[in-house]
């Protein structure tokens, strides 16, 4: 008994008191900072990018494809690409994930999430999600799990992962969607009662990421159903996930 109390004291307070203000370590690659004026169009970054995320016409990085490996940063002779540790990178539109030269974090944050009144009304106070991993490498899955651990404790906002799609308000997809998983994903989605939302987490789910050229993917799910929230990353950091959902719910 005394030992347990000792352990409890040692454990202390592990939760992050204010998730909205928490910051991630300096070396974290969260948000691309681009300097189009110094870009020399040498294509070094394009040649090393594993996900085809960089476009040189008006230098831009697509966070929906980017795997945040940082290889482009090291390849650029003009230092035109870098990443800041800003992590609130979720967006409700696929287009706004494409970051152009000179876009500041504050400007991105203002325009990235457009709140829909019906979503706030229906899910604003409680949101239960069903997670489906469809070809994920277990990176995003581990970070989704971490969202509910004692540090991040997403449950404090009434956001939880439900065990059954029948108890869920939406689907959170990780992985590039393999052919072998496509029908199980769709079955799970259809088992969620309407109204329901779709969240794509990680580069794989958003665009196929490093796997986008694989012939064994079956991504037609996204032709049929609209994604309500994109959470970029490889894998997405728990703070990106939680803050993205909170902004989406205007909390």
């Amino acid at each position: 008994m005394l030992d347990l109390i000792k352990i409890r004291i040692e454990q202390g307070k592990q939760y992050i008191p204010d998730l909205r203000k928490a910051e991630i370590g300096k070396r974290f690659r969260g948000f691309p900072v681009l300097d189009g004026a110094s870009c020399e169009n040498c294509e070094s970054c394009v040649s090393v990018c594993p996900a085809g995320a960089i476009s040189l016409q008006l230098l831009s990085v697509d966070m929906g494809k980017c795997v945040f490996c940082g290889d482009c940063v090291r390849s650029c002779p003009a230092n035109a690409i870098s990443f800041s540790n800003f992590h609130k990178t979720s967006s409700t539109s696929r287009e706004s994930l494409k970051i152009g030269s000179g876009l500041s974090e504050a400007d991105y944050l203002k325009s990235a999430i457009s709140v829909r009144e019906e979503i706030v009304k229906i899910f604003g106070r409680s949101l239960k999600l069903r997670s489906v991993s469809a070809g994920g490498c277990n990176g995003c899955e581990m970070e989704l799990n971490a969202c509910s651990n004692v540090n991040f404790d997403m449950g404090r906002f009434g956001i939880e992962i439900a065990a059954s799609p029948r108890h869920a308000d939406g689907l959170i997809i990780s992985g590039p969607i393999t052919e072998n998983m496509a029908s199980a994903l769709e079955d799970t989605f259809k088992a969620i009662p309407e109204p329901r939302i779709v969240i794509a987490v990680g580069a794989c789910a958003i665009s196929g990421g490093a796997f986008q050229d694989s012939p064994v993917l079956e991504r037609s799910f996204f032709d049929r159903y609209k994604v309500d929230l994109y959470i970029p990353g490889c894998p997405a950091h728990p703070l990106t996930i939680i803050n993205g959902i909170l902004d989406f719910l205007r909390r």
């Binding site: 990018c49 490996c69 070809g135 393999t178 072998n180 012939p215 490889c234």
Partner: peptide, 25 residues
């Protein structure tokens, strides 16, 4: 087999220097 993404085939080719993210996945 549900997770089969064809990673061995993707790792082949001449552009092995940009396959690091794949090997990490």
């Amino acid at each position: 087999g549900y997770q089969h993404r064809g990673i061995e085939a993707l790792l082949c080719g001449a552009d092995f220097m940009k396959k690091a993210a794949l090997a990490e996945s």
